[in-house]
Design a protein around this nucleic acid. Sequence first.
DNA 1: CTTTGCATTATTTTT
DNA 2: TAATGCAAAG
Length: 745
Amino acid sequence: MYLLDKLNEKQREAASYGKGPILVVAGAGTGKTRVLTHRIAYLIETGKAMPWEILAITFTNKAANEMKERIAELIDYSIDRMWIGTFHSVCVRILRKNIGRIGYDSNFVIYDTNDQKILIKDCIKELNLDSKKYNINAIRGMISGEKNRRISPDKYISEHFGEFYKRNVGEIYALYEKKLKIANALDFDDLLLKALKILETEEEVRKLYQDRFKYILVDEYQDTNLIQYMLVKILGQKPDGGDNVFVVGDEDQSIYGWRGANINNILNFEKDFPGAKVVKLEKNYRSTNIILNAANGVIKNNCQRKGKNLYTDSKGGNLIRIFEMDNEKDEAFTVAALMRKERRENNIEYSDIAVLYRTNVQSRALEEGLMREGIPYKIVGGLKFYERKEIKDIMAYLMLVYNQKDNISFNRIVNVPRRKIGLKTIGIIEDHANETEVSKFEACYDASELNLTAAASKNISDFVSMIEMLMIKKDVMPVSEFIREVYETTGYESMLFSDDTVEGRSRVENIEEFLSAAKDFEERYEENSLEDFLAHVSLLSDVDRTDETQKNTVTLMTVHSAKGLEFDTVFITGLEDGIFPIIHQDDLNDDDLEEERRLFYVAITRAKRMLYITYANDRMRFGNHEMKIKSRFLKEIPDECIEENQPDTFAAKKIEKLEKGKHFYGKRHPFVKNSFFKGEDDIKHERPRLKSDVIRPGDKVMHKAWGIGTVVQIKGEGNSKSVLIAFENKGVKNLILEYAPIEKI
DNA sequence: CTTTGCATTATTTTT
DNA sequence: TAATGCAAAG
């Protein structure tokens, strides 16, 4: 069939497989997305399924969108009614329709990690427990873990009744669940759990979806957890008794064990789904032979794997260059210098370059280095737009208007902007809410009967009427307009406008950006109600959130975020023992080490052509200098793939210069040169020069000495290109483009 | 009721 | 280092 012509034999075998369970073991870069999209297209084109009879589950929304686009190119049918999304978004869809059956209202809200923590904190306080001994993050993790093992609070308490600490954790867990229920809210785990529960207990619903989804496809199967496995299992069951699931994954890329993902889901697939077919894709189309050999050399040290060896037709490739650096600032500088070199010598666009690291904190030093060096970059997951206060506040308004039981959102905004509703007023409301077992907003209706001052009572009722007005408006306005309405009528806008600081202004800008994101959402999706928007925003992953409009910038991200992506040139930074592999508290068990190794394997296999690895001898952590030794993983890369380097001459010269120079900064350790880039003058003349193609007559430029000017004319070619610039008050100057300290503005 | 300042503590990875 | 929390003062 022509559709499958472009696939290799193995890929075709997988894509055209008939009914029954099948596992496609797809190594990195072996074309698994291709197989998935072609299989879906194949099922539709051959009449085996209609678009709405297909359910495809991806790891991120971005992956889902890309898959939709690719499928749309392959087939003539409309894909609108095809379900493609993450486990979480698919479950939300199921829940909106059916959650009434298990005692929730269909207008539930989704609580993110941050909301969870607030809730847990409230629980600890309410139970009069010592907040020092009960660590919120740890407890959040424990609750999530128990939920995913389907252990109820009661069960947990009875299992640990003799253990004081754990019993109390159980009490926190119980209260946490109760509070969620009162708020008609679900956390991330609940989205999957409640959907599963409905499918298990409601036969009608189960039959409906089992019937509807004739074919189920799951990507990144190695990162599914117990609940996700059960969802796949139950949805995949067909009337004829067979399981109809098509899963794609790679045990060597299982990197979410800490989140409950179970590598055994993929390792035991054939046991779990009797009669399963297994197809292995081992031919790699992404990386050079050298990079593949390095990756194979590393991953073969793992035991938890079925074993496979990636190969490629392409021969050779560039050696992997490994750099030993003094500290993280040098590391950043060297990365920047090498990037510029790649661009200059190999014509590599910045957008084809990625810098990967193990932990998010490492991005800071890199960011500073790139900024100083004038290399455009974007950070995935770094500064979280949707976690900024102003965005969370507006979101809280939206959530409260949507679901008046949402106590977390209520707390967030009752008094923002100031409405003279203080802690004691809220306390009284809260007590009343607890007594009568209603939400705080609902408790506000009784404000006049409570022991409040007249003023407080009035303030509360004004607040209530404002929210009620918005509740009416939400149904008659498009989301983006409605959000603006909220922004204005709640007084949030005037609050921001009255703040004249830089911070205040950037908040206004952020809100504007948020509004345009809402507008964009409204135009892009057909299901674009407030409800859809709220779910959409809650379920965005870091990769989904990154600004795609910024072109030609390098990308900085964690290795986790890089899963599924590829770049021409990749830098893996911080290859130090204790950082990568990360060691938490002195212990690193074998399972953890294997996961770290898989993570390193994922990092290596992101690179298509060129791979750089760096490590620093001294890294600043918690404001202290720490001595580091190079990662044990580096020894696992076969020698013949590596070229060990000192920083290249460009950087080395610079370091030398600074060493004997006067730039010794740092308050606590004056003897360590830790502010490498503070030497402004040294940097300035090595800044990237303006490329002639980015500057045109009419452009405004900033010159270091002469200030702002306008480009009049560009003369000459190549290196000798010169530019005529008219400066304000300084006359017209002729400058050699290559050396001129000018920046476009 | 709000703001300020000092002290403490946290860093894996994220839907 | 930077973010958060708590106490004290305005």
